[in-house]
Design a protein around this nucleic acid. Structure first.
Length: 482
RNA sequence: GGCGACGUAGCCAAGUGGUAAGGCAAGGGUCUGCAAAACCCCCAUUCGUCGGUUCAAGUCCGACCGUCGCCUCCA
């Protein structure tokens, strides 16, 4: 088996081959930190997270870099997003940035997105950016007009190769008016002169100014990953112009390929329309987490292919919540059986010996096929059914079989997909709660033995009101938090 | 106008030439004091429409209909 990925550069499924055999260098465009993140961000970074996790599962040593954009990303009005946010909240720009970096990290932690190895910030790389702009000027790829420096797309014939666009066939100024000082409408800013009221500014050879939006990613990606690196990821909507500009700057300056594989994530939509700040149709990650579990949100995102769009709806999230709940129930039962020495000392083994390996192989085959998580989930659910059947049909299990099944859930559901927590059974509220619940279950069991059903049911319903679900099995009673 | 994506059961969603995965929901059954959980059965003669290629098409080609994305705001 070999990993194949869909490379937007070639528009083909390609065998994945990193520059160095055991090592993968990977970059993803991060968020502009001027507000709380919403579910659209969650989709992109959960998808990238699973890609990183799977590469590590395959044994690669992955260095994953994801930036924070904290300057230079402008609104249609020309105002910097960070500046506007700072004015809105009456704080210093860097205070605003700090707040929303922390917010973003909190959200990603809560979603189980593993932190990248490096999270560079644009404002921390202004000296490097200035060097790049100087280089591009001296190499003839850029020109300066009154404190603004533009990249000349006509000097880089490959401009458009990622998005497969012919610059001259685009409708120039379709959305934003073309600046008169550009030689070509598609030229983009490397460095911008700071107007007098502009808050963020750095001295440069062209006067006080600030970096353009695209240059930071070229500079930071190559600084930490090398002139040419393996994977560049991010949201599909950034393919043009942002990613296209990154390539142009980096390949023009370094005369070397930028990223070998471009893996781009489809957008999250609401009623078919993209979730975005500007449309106001967004749900923040924090709000989503108050309604659904992190695993349910991840499951929802992973239940469609990363390159495609996902349409958000309450129904879809609720279905995900229930689905992931069934997965958790099975894992919980499995681990419960492992703790039960009497049951685990038995000899029952899974009917098809070696069948467990097949699940792992099928899962890998799905993930090897351009990270086909819906297919991988389907296989995980087939295993859920198999394990449930095994647990149902046998009261005394072979510890080795239980451990092998648990290992698969930990590896595939936990390490790779991040939807099966390692500590599922420890979420049950701590020793004090556990002691109380066990005591109540004891009382209820006494009531049941004396056939006092109304008292037994009263205890069960009152506990359910407190969020503690009781389930009577053939031999014993189990409980869990709702 | 240019580039691109998508249209599979009530809902979500895999499947790129060989006869429709998986999840949620609905229905029937087993188990159970009841409930819950779990298991079993059932759930698309059919993949937007119409043509074409082929022994064979959801899968390839063409046209049409519909939805959406990008074309210097976005993850």
């Amino acid at each position: 088996m070999a990993l194949k990925v869909y490379n937007y550069l070639s528009r083909e499924l390609e065998r994945f081959k990193p520059l160095r055999p055991e090592h993968v260098n990977m970059y993803a465009c991060g968020p502009t930190v001027y507000d709380h993140a919403h579910l659209g961000h969650a989709k992109t970074y959960v998808a990238m997270d699973v890609i990183v996790r799977y590469l590590r599962y395959l044994g690669y040593n992955v260095r994953y870099v994801r930036n924070f954009t904290d300057v230079g990303h402008l609104l249609d009005t020309g105002e910097d997003r960070i500046s506007r946010g700072a004015r809105r909240e009456r704080v210093e720009p860097m205070e605003l940035v700090e707040t929303y970096i922390n917010s973003f990290n909190d959200d990603m932690d809560a979603l189980g997105v593993i932190r990248p190895n490096i999270t560079p910030r644009a404002t921390c790389h202004v000296p490097e950016i200035i060097v790049w702009v100087e280089d591009l000027l001296s190499q003839g790829y850029a020109y300066e007009v009154d404190g603004n420096v533009y990249f000349s797309v006509e000097k880089f014939p490959e401009y458009g190769k990622l998005s497969q666009r012919q610059v001259d066939e685009q409708q120039a100024g379709a959305r934003v008016e073309v600046r008169e000082d550009k030689r070509h409408p598609a030229d983009f800013a490397l460095w911008k002169r700071a107007a007098s009221e502009h808050l963020m500014r750095w001295p440069s050879p062209w006067g006080e100014g600030y970096p353009g939006w695209h240059i930071e990613c070229s500079v930071m990606a190559t600084k930490y990953l090398g002139t040419t690196f393996d994977i560049h990821g991010g949201g599909l909507e950034n393919m043009f112009p942002h990613n296209e500009c990154e390539i142009a700057q980096a390949e023009a300056r370094n005369a070397a390929p930028f990223a070998n594989y471009w893996l781009l994530v489809g957008s999250l939509t609401v009623n078919g329309v993209k979730m975005s700040k500007s449309l106001g149709n967004f749900l923040t990650i924090k709000d989503a987490l108050s309604l659904y579990s992190a695993e349910a949100i991840r499951y929802f995102i992973l239940s469609s292919h990363y390159r495609g769009p996902v349409d958000f709806s309450r129904d879809a999230l609720q279905a995900a919540q229930r689905g992931v709940g069934r997965l958790h129930n099975t894992v919980r039962k499995l681990r419960y059986a492992m703790k039960d020495a009497a049951s685990a000392a038995g000899t029952a083994v899974l009917a098809q010996v070696g069948g467990l390996d097949e699940y792992r192989e099928d899962f890998q085959a799905a993930m090897d096929d351009d990270f086909n998580t819906p297919q991988a989930l389907a296989i995980l659910f087939e295993l859920v059914k198999e394990v449930n059947r095994h647990l149902d049909e046998n009261s005394r299990h072979a510890m080795g079989t239980l451990a092998a099944m648990d290992r698969i859930f930990r590896d595939l559901g936990g390490k790779v997909l991040g939807i099966v927590p390692d500590n599922l059974e420890e979420r049950e509220g701590g020793a004090t709660v556990a002691g109380l619940v066990e005591f109540l279950l004891e009382l209820r069991q006494q009531a049941r033995e004396s056939r006092d059903w109304s008292r037994a049911d009263l205890i069960r319903s009152r506990m359910a009101e407190l969020g503690i679900l009781i389930e009577d099995g053939p031999d014993d009673t189990t409980w869990r938090l709702a």
